[in-house]
Each structure stands twice: as structure tokens, then as C-alpha cells.
Simulated scan of single mutants.
Amino acid sequence: MELNFKKSYKFAFKSSAYITLFFLGVFLLYHFFIAPLHLIFVFGFAFCLALFSFFLIQYRVETFIYKRVKKIYDDVSLLENTSFRNQPITTDMETLTKEVQKFARDKKLEIETLKIREEYRREFLGNISHELKTPLFTVQGYLLTLLDGAMEDKTIRKKYLQRADKGVERLIYIVKDLDMITKLETGDIHLEVSRFDIVEVVQNVFDLLEMKASKKKITLSFDAKYAKPIWVLADQEKIQQVVTNLVVNSIKYGNEGGTTEVGIEDLVNDRLIVRVTDNGEGIKKQYIGRLFERFYRVDKSGARSEGGSGLGLAIVKHIIEGHNEKIYVESQFGVGSEFSFTLEKTE
């Protein structure tokens, strides 16, 4: 690629001025203390020396910098696709130094970002491998046992087929969530925005999860009595999934005999906030920043025993951000957690 060369005359001008002043001073000392000289000759010589010095230094600086910096550009192929490549080469050393330092800082930041992404990729592949491996091996184990002769026993056959079916259901659940989050992350999210009652949506979620909560003796309730509908503008189906995922998490990590409360409050003129609060085990501060990553689990062994795809909070985050809204989390280890998100309200 042909490089854009930006000339700067400051260095050559200053250098030629210093040289000219030095020789002018020498001639003037000679004129006053040794032998008189024609001043026209002295200043004429100084002027010619200044011009000659300026053009010589400018030419040499341009040649020196251009050739060597161009060689660096050509040798380092990594620069080919960077914005630094498109910047003009300057003969101003101060400007050039600043540009190179800025480039070095940008490259360092880019390398650090790539390292973080690589670590995230390795962790993601390990997590998804574990998530898929467990139900696959479970299904395979039951089927192989049946093929080895257990199929003749009707009781064992039915029990093992039912367990294999649960493993297949878990696989389908994971694949569906993976498909959904892939679409969400690529921006392929189609929102069917409508006016609906958020109180009714939360109540529907409570009704759906009542049996799941009762197994751990967890009470699902509102923080207050909402006698009137609270209308919002959003995709009802996706917001119901958000509430479902948050309440399921509160049940999964809640203490036996605990509570899960949902509160709905006005935030600003056209916004409200929905809070899902539990008195479960809580989350340590160092884990909160990674809660919305795919497959990230604070308590990996315990969480997997509870089931789920490990994608619930990641899906919640993408759905809320797809609505141009915000999601928040506050938690105190040993006390409980609160997940909240904003919605646009309407009359």
C-alpha cells in the first residue's frame, strides 16, 4: 500500500536556524575583534547558509524517516489492516513518537482483549461439552443396559426408557436455548410489542411454577396487593420468559421454606421496574459480574444437579437489552438476591 507522506518543516527550520546563528556569531566575533568584514557579505552568507542547511536537513530527515518507517510498515504485516497504516508518515519526530506510542497502547489493549476472548472461548467450549455430555451419556447408558438384556424385564424396560426420555428432553431444552441465544446475540430478535398487564404475566408465572416451588416449600408472592392492572409496552411472550427464568433461578438457589417476591414500582415518568427478590443463599461479590455469561454457574456442581441449560440469565439479559431496557442485580451472600429490570409503561 502506498503511504501518505506528511511533511513537517519545524525540525529542519530550527536546526538550520541554530547552525546559521552559530556561524553568524563566529563571523561577527571575527569582524569586531580580529579584522573587519563587509556586513553585506556576512549576512548574505548567513542567509545562503540558512537556506542550504534547511533544504539539506529537510531532505535528509524525510529520506531517513520515510525509508526506515516504511520498512517497519512493510516488515510488520499485522499493520496492514490497522488504522495506523492509513495515517500519514510525518517528519515531525514528536508527532511520530506520539503516533507510535498510541499505536502500541492500542495494540496492547487489543491483545489483552483477544486473550480474554480466548479464555472465554475455552471456558465456553468446556461448559457446553459438559452440558451436552451428561444427558448424552445418561441416555446411552440406559439404552445400552436395555440392549444387553434388561429389555426382557417390563418393569426395568419402562423405567429405563422413561429415564432416557428425560435425558433427551434435557438435550432438547439445551439445544432450544442455544438456538434462542444465538439468534439474540446476532440481533435476530423479532419483538411483537403489545400492551399487556405485567401483574397478570407474573401471576401466570406463579401458577406455572407453583408445584416446582412447593417441592422446596418456597412461597411465591407479590410484595403488595395489586388490585388494578399495570400496563406495559413490550413483547409479552418474551417478558414472560424473563420473569419465568428469574423466578426459576430464585427457586433453584433458594433455601427450603424460603420466599420469592415480585414487586412492581414506578421508576420515572414512562418507566417502571420489576423486582424479583429471594432470601436464598445469595451470590458472592466476585461472581456477580459474570452471572449473565452463557453457561456460567457460581456453584457448578449444585446448579447442574438442579437441571437447566445454564443459559437462563444470558437469555434474560439479551431479551431485556433487545427492548432497550436495563437489568440489574444486587446480592448479599447468605442473605439473598434481587434481580430487576425496567419496562416501558403505558395507560
Rank of each mutant, 00 (worst) to 15 (best):
G149N: 02
F41A: 12
K228W: 07
K71E: 08
A224G: 00
E112K: 15
V268H: 06
V276M: 02
N245K: 05
V61Y: 13
K217E: 12
K225L: 14
K228D: 14
F206S: 11
D266E: 14
V298P: 04
L161H: 02
A224D: 01
G322I: 02
I198T: 03
S53T: 08
S16P: 09
E306M: 11
I65L: 12
Y18T: 04
L96H: 00
K252V: 08
I251M: 02
Y296S: 03
N4H: 14
G310W: 03
E2C: 09
M180I: 09
Q286W: 03
V175L: 15
F64Q: 06
F103D: 08
E131P: 05
L79H: 12
E94R: 14
D266N: 14
V26T: 09
D299T: 05
G280C: 03
N255C: 10
F196C: 08
G307R: 05
R68G: 09
Y9G: 10
E344I: 08
D177I: 04
R85C: 12
R195T: 05
T342S: 05
L311K: 02
R122I: 08
Q203E: 14
M93P: 13
Q332Y: 09
L114F: 15
C48R: 11
L146A: 07
V168N: 03
T91Y: 01
F292D: 07
F32Q: 13
T277Y: 10
A234Y: 00
T82M: 11
Y142A: 00
L109W: 10
N269W: 09
V76T: 07
S309I: 08
I239Q: 00
G257F: 04
L114D: 14
T90S: 01
I283W: 07
